[in-house]
Amino acid sequence: MVETSSRASPAAPSVARAYGAVIRSRVAAQTAYRGSFAFEVVGQFAIGLVDFSEIYVVFHQVRAFGGFRFAEVALMFGLATCAFTLGDIAVGHVERLPDYVRSGQFDAMLLRPLPALGQLVTSDFSLRRLGRFAFALVVLAASVSRAHIHWTPARVGLLAVTPVAGAVIFCAIFVATATVSFWLVEGTEFANAFTYGGNYLSSMPFTIFDRAVRSFFTFVVPAAFVGYLPALALLGRDDPLGLPSWLSWSGPLVALLAAAVAGLVWRTGLRHYVGAGS
């Protein structure tokens, strides 16, 4: 936020502290009932398990799936699910924007001296989803140790950066698609196709998809950069479908690009909201 107010004095706390206070209060509100919170964390862990069961059942039928072995597909699943759950914890609740608009809570945010997106993002943190993240970490750790990766410093770095970059990509998808509800009030389910659909698809080898689906989820909605492409780079394999290998390393860059695009989409949406009235 670029702003100089006549009231901002050197003693005034920073924007970061403002967000910090909001986030802390959200966390405290969720964990207040320890019993049910623990229960929900376990439930989220189980969601991860159920998601993974699909890959387990697939490999009950076949030994190679889209040209990849179990550990390799599990690696894609682990990377994608780590990224998705992190993104979901951070900004997943933006999909409730239509509710906020209807209840007037969104207008209340607009009356406060912080950017609306920042307030929307910090309005909630679903910590219970850490359960699903934990499951994803287990899968990732197990698959990394069994996928016969030839380790180099670059690959270690890529493994560390990929879940974060992927999380940024999912945050961008969440924000960009939630913005749609400024135009379509009931558009939440439409967004699901790209957020939850993106998560589903990004945990699979892209070789199983039709060319049109593949291109869309690589170059329009960059889900390929979350699981499949970085997994190729870690495994030292070329894309069987012929994408250049440098693309497999460009997840972090794509994440920055996606974030910028999502920011632009949000600004357009907000301008529309203020312009159209509700």
Binding site: A8, A12, P13, S14, A18, G20, A21, V22
Partner: peptide, 9 residues
């Protein structure tokens, strides 16, 4: 929270 959001000393 409002104190923090308005960044009041």
């Amino acid at each position: 929270l409002l104190g923090a959001i308005h960044r009041l000393p």
